[in-house]
Amino acid sequence: MINESKVKILSKLAGFEKKHRKTPEELEKLTKGRMVAHGVCWTVIMTTVAFLIILILLSFYKGSLGTNWYSFLGGSYDKLFRPGILIAYAAFELFYIVVAIVFYSKKYKNMKKELEEYRRRRTNYNDFYGREDK
């Protein structure tokens, strides 16, 4: 005979473990600063790649196809470091850093709430069914 409430608790515990792909002990040790910093680093890398792709696409739009990228820059990479492009890059990165900080802070807060819920269910499970399993 299947114990319905036991199965429900176990399913929710399994759901949490599958979602986060880390043990609850590892998640306990994770601090907000570390999670946000990790997220911001990846965001800076991805948005830099995206910015470079956008620059290349803009060069296509301006009809510079047929020349390779280096010739388009006039045989020098200095063109990439013009003030206009640097200011645009800085503004672009600043915006996405703010977005990343907000996003990962919220993600950390939700993760902590779910971890508390997980701990509570785990304690309930051990109290009710711990002896049975042994």
């Binding site: 991805m46 948005t47 790649v49 995206a50 792709i53 956008i54 290349i56 696409l57 296509f60 196809l65 996405y96």
Partner: peptide
């Protein structure tokens, strides 16, 4: 070139929003 341009546009969308 056309395929690369369209793929680049889709990649930019992924990097800036869908991730």
């Amino acid at each position: 070139q056309l395929a690369m341009v369209v793929m680049a546009v889709m990649l930019v969308m992924y990097l800036l929003f869908f991730r």
